[in-house]
Design a protein around this nucleic acid. Structure first.
Lengths: 223, 223
DNA sequence: TATAGTTTCATACAAGTGTTTGAATTGCAA
DNA sequence: TTGCAATTCAAACACTTGTATGAAACTATA
């Protein structure tokens, strides 16, 4: 029974270093130095650098996905088998946003690692992300049950847009902060989640999309 | 007067190779081989690899920004100095989406390069993107003029979300295609632009955001 | 044509990378 | 203790990368 101490030290050090300095700037030598282990230990325990990165990412992804599904299931139970659309969306974007946003000093290495992973797209992680679709299907299925009258294509777009807003907010919160000169509060995670949920629900429950809707909306723009 | 032929060959070859294979996989030796010039020519004409990448990106960015501002100006003229909100958003997301989406075979190397640039975030490009904020300020200013009664914070979030939807659609159109099993038509660029504009306009002209709105929307969900 | 400035070229350089090797060490069971 | 497998270690390997050099070729002016 291996003690796994070396293995764990490597994982911890790698996660922290990648989170702090990005994938491009961190070498295996940096990692083993921080972990206090030998260079060859990485290849011995993980096979290769890419497999180390993959293991880090898979671990965190599974945790997030589990959290999402728990929330989804809870929402479906609460709704007697059919979750409200806003609860579905909250389950979709909430876990990630809660994990990655909030005050800097409260962000764990794990959270900062996942932010890095979404900013600097690196091959081993890209490969894993491509297998994420099965997980999302559970959400599109729940959305179909929640809004059975709605065109499935609109639902896919709604799901896509919800993820887009969440993802981009994590990736580039800095730009929004600068643009708004600090008036957009990126530390109010719950507020951000609700903003995204509200917009997504409106997108999904508004009138059917057709290419002339925009003009209509603009035309009836009150004042 | 230098003929610039070497310079141009390098730019063209680099753009095409980066577009096809990504930044990580393409070396200077690949580029000069494709361009039919000597290895040293890159450093002679551009100073460094990073400056070559930067020049490629700056050129394309300026072109997109110019197009955006032209559309914005046209919309403001049409509206007698105050553009409609949907026109502003269309000017913001339209040029990028038209440039980067659409049928594969119609996508220019320039467009595919910009897609790469948004997927694989590489240091010289990140540095340039950070200077994009002044450009966005012109749009947030136009939005304030268009919706003077609206809380500026909501406008910043609306702008942010519009860009998020556009950007993510470009970055990861593949995921949406797979998830929807092809039923979301990524080649219908104008339709996509209108979808994003419609959602953004709803987000901006809907009721003021507060954290309880989502529940309200869900509650009045018909059926 | 002679000359000065620009551009191209082959080649070398220096540094850094992930990975491998084979010997030393450790931990544990017989 | 002995033997054996798992682990750790220092060192080297093999390779790629971007960049620098200095000579050669070219271009255009006087």
């Amino acid at each position: 029974m291996p003690s796994d101490l070396t293995r764990t030290s490597i994982l911890d050090a790698a996660e922290r270093l990648y989170a702090d300095r990005g994938f491009a700037d961190v070498t295996l030598r940096d990692i083993v130095a921080a972990a206090g282990v030998n260079l060859a230990a990485v290849n011995y325990h993980f096979g290769s650098k890419d497999e180390l990165i993959a293991e880090l990412f898979v671990t965190r992804s599974l945790a997030t996905n589990r959290e999402r599904l728990n929330e989804l299931k809870a929402a479906e139970v609460a709704g007697g088998g059919r979750a409200e659309i806003d609860a579905i969306l909250r389950a979709l974007v909430g876990p990630t946003l809660r994990g990655c946003l909030g005050p800097d000093n409260e962000r764990s290495a794990a959270a900062r690692f996942m932010i890095r992973a979404s900013i600097e797209s690196v091959p081993p992680i890209r490969r894993i992300k491509n297998r994420e679709i099965d997980h999302l299907r559970k959400f599109s299925a729940a959305m179909r049950r929640s809004l059975p009258g709605r065109n499935p294509v609109d639902l896919y777009w709604g799901l896509h847009f919800a993820l887009a807003m969440a993802h981009q907010t994590i990736r580039d919160s800095e730009r929004l902060t600068k643009l708004s000169e600090g008036s957009c509060d990126l530390d109010d995670v719950q507020g951000i989640i609700e903003r995204i949920v509200v917009v997504s629900v409106m997108a999904l429950t508004g009138r059917e999309t057709d290419s002339r809707t925009a003009e209509t909306v603009a035309a009836r723009r009150a004042r």
